[in-house]
Structure formats: C-alpha cells, structure tokens
Design a protein around this nucleic acid. Structure first.
Length: 280
DNA sequence: GTTTAACCCTGCACGC
DNA sequence: TGCGTGCAGGGTTAAA
C-alpha cells in the first residue's frame, strides 16, 4: 500500500472514526497478532492505552497513519504490503488474518487484518513520536504545498543515485513504492536508471509534475487494487486506478503511447516496468 | 554515500 | 491432483 491508498483510508477514517470513543480493543490470540503490535510487550499493554480514548483526528506521514487520541497519545499504523482497516459490526464474522479489533462505544468496530504481517500498529505519546526512528526520517510528502520543484531540484542534484530506488527511498520523498515510482517515471519520460544529478531543469520539472499528477489521480481513483495485493478501502471496496496504469504489471503489453512492448528489469530486488521507447 | 542481498510472511501461479 | 519453487513487496539491516 502506497501513498494514494493510505490517503484514501485516511479520508475514510476521518469520516468513520473521528469523534468516536473506543470501548475496548481485542488483540486476537493468534501468534501473528503479536507481530503486528511488535513494539508492545503484551496484548493488554497495547489495549489499555486505547480503551476509553476518543479519536480526535487522522493524519498521514508518508505511508504511516497517525490517529490522534484525546489523551495526547497517538495510534501509529503502517499497512506494509497487505494490511487493511475494515469497518464492521459485532454481527459480522472477522475476516481471515484479523489481528486487532477496535470496538467503539457507539457501536461498530474497526478491524485490522494483514496476511503477511508486514504491517504494524503501536501507541506512542505524541511528544515521543520524534524518537521513533522510522517516523522521524520520513521525508517531505510530495502532495504537500511546501514541496516545491526548486527544493526538489536541489535534493536531486545533491544525490548521485538511480532515480527509481531514490524515489522509493522514504528518506528522500515519502509515499512512493514500486507501483507509483514506475508510473511516475513513465509519466516523466525518464528511465529507472537515470542518475539523479544528471537531469536537466526541464527533466526535473517533468518529474516533479509527474509525481504530483500521478499521485493525485491515484487518490481520485481511490487507489490501485491488483490481484494478490488486494487493497480495499475501509468499506471493503477496491480502488480503480489499476485501469489507469501505464506500465506497472504490463510486461510484454503494448505501451499506451507508442505501442512498444513494456519491458521489465530487476533493480535491487524489485521489478521495474518501463517503456524502452518513451523513457530515456 | 550508494548499492546489494537477505530477512520477515503468506498466498498464488507455475511447471513437473 | 499434488508438490516444490519463485515471486510479490512494505521496510530494516548488514555487508560490499
């Protein structure tokens, strides 16, 4: 799950859970549930920090969600690859791989399910969040107004790295994963292996614009739902951006712009999709 | 500083 | 039909 999907979930939660008070939290007995709350020693310790608290707002930092509580604590959530939040009621049976159920006083609950358990949840006092290494190092969000192309240009030239891994580096810009970095590079007409300090100012601007447009479009289409990744929103509904993808997952298929077959390459363990004709 | 590989985990597609 | 293998990818870490 990358920036657009996390943002869609954030907006859903804003409507669905802000203002609600937590009656109790059930960390499921399966061993894997402890992987999700791995920063807490015991189930009870995690649950006790949430019980009785009201959720006051939902922020996003990169791919992390931050649910602010009325006592100053924050519930931090990361979805990893296959994590998801689902609205439910007591009557509905829990989906497979449900690890945490947050029950509200006004009725209804919020389930966290995650088959591959790369996801994570933990509670931290707001003023301690700076000490959480992964959060502290998260770079600027490309959708923020404060993200300017001039600043982006400076950061690119300061580094000497291949564009694709650099775009996926959360310490450089936050929110891009394998899908959207490929889509952004295609939209910018740049190859995965172009060096960041080799771009003309025109190319920098193309990359900057591509990043904003692709991510905004993906949010508008409510994210990308691909086969086994199976992202769905808080209501269980899939996204629609998969139909808009230009390169990701389209190996061997004709480029939508020039009809050249889309090619792939393995780059630091991740498959990169690109058009050999349109990207240089 | 940058790059690579290995690791965590489960479900699915694939070939035999 | 059934089994082994590889792949998918969020992130971290150690090593090159």
């Amino acid at each position: 799950m990358e920036l657009p999907e996390v943002e869609v979930v954030r907006r859903d939660l804003e409507k669905e859970v802000v203002g609600r008070r937590i009656r109790g939290v059930d960390v499921r007995p399966q061993r894997n549930a402890m992987r999700i709350i791995r920063r807490h020693a015991r189930r009870k310790e995690f649950a006790d920090q949430l019980a009785g608290r009201k959720i006051t707002k939902v922020d996003r930092k990169g791919k992390y969600l931050l649910l602010a509580l009325d006592d100053g604590d924050v519930l931090v959530v990361h979805f990893g690859m296959t994590g998801q939040f689902l609205r439910g009621t007591k009557r509905q049976s829990l989906p497979a791989h449900t690890h945490v159920v947050i029950e509200f006083q006004q009725g209804g609950d919020l389930r966290f399910a995650d088959p591959r358990t790369f996801g994570e949840m933990f509670v931290s006092p707001a003023d301690q969040l700076g000490k959480v290494k992964e959060l502290d190092h998260i770079a600027i969000d490309p959708l923020e107004d404060t993200f300017t192309w001039q600043e982006f240009s400076g950061e690119l030239s300061r580094r000497a790295a291949k564009l694709k891994p650099l775009l996926m580096d959360q310490k450089f810009v936050s929110g891009l994963g394998n899908i959207y970095s490929d889509e952004v590079l295609f939209a910018a007409g740049l190859r995965f292996d172009r060096m960041s300090d080799s771009l003309s100012s025109q190319e920098v601007r193309r990359l900057y614009r591509a990043m904003r447009e692709v991510l905004q479009d993906a949010v508008r289409f409510r994210g990308t739902t691909l086969g086994d990744e199976a992202y769905v929103d808080v209501f269980g509904k899939p996204g629609e951006f998969q139909a808009e993808l230009k390169v990701y997952g389209r190996r061997g298929q004709a480029c939508r712009r020039c009809r050249t077959p889309i090619d792939t390459v393995k780059l630091s363990g991740r498959t990169s999709y690109f058009c050999p004709q349109c990207q240089s």
